[in-house]
Amino acid sequence: MARVIFRWTVLSVMGVFFLLPLVAMVEFSTRDAKTWPLLLDWPRLSAEYPALAEGIVASLAQAALTSLLMLALLVPTAVWVRLRLPRLRRLVEFLCLLPLTIPAIVLVVGLAPVYAWVNYFLGGSSLTLVFAYTILVLPYAYRAIDAGLSAIDVKTLAEAARSLGAGWATVILRVVLPNIRSAVLSAAFLTVALVLGEFTIASLLHRTNLQVAIEFLGKSSAGVSVAVSLAALLLAFVLLLVLSLAGNSKKGRTS
């Protein structure tokens, strides 16, 4: 009984602490009744706050392209290393997890000269941030995909496919990929959530995305920026919540 009381006391205190800022955001962004209708009206939003609209579009494009680049880079490499170059696995894992120990602010310092070249070859578009973001999501995406590959017998699948005459592209795209689709999906979800929340690199490399736009807007119209923050937050919450609940329920089923 004491345990139950303890549990619910702790949970309600924590619940208040964690819900209060969210409630406050709702309250703050509804002080002006025109804020939320404006957010749902895309043409008016982009007319009144062009920088914000540009940031939203840039972030969505960055999220999509980063997911694609991450998958194109990571899935074939992980499969290939597992099948043909097991000795390189430690190195690949080390490189993929390296960004965890390098703070984003440090990465920016090193990326600045690299992006001087990127600017030279590809221009200063905010889409070029996709390269840096792919590095940023590497640890999370690698863990998800590696876990997915560990759960299936890649070797047998690949040998079976090869013995039936499939090429390597077919093995990766049509045999392995469908078998790890939930891992691929979770890697992509994590990528989208991380990219939508990224500020450090975009702001310091003088490019725009959603967070940069929100921060810029915060100086002039706090209500709108809090409303957009809340909307972006809810989107990321839903993405990650679906991801973790789906992961949990699957674990429950197999065990």
Partner: peptide, 12 residues
């Protein structure tokens, strides 16, 4: 974390 968290606390 980041900007949204900062704004959440500014609103709070």
């Amino acid at each position: 974390g980041g900007v949204t968290l900062a704004f959440a606390f500014l609103a709070t």
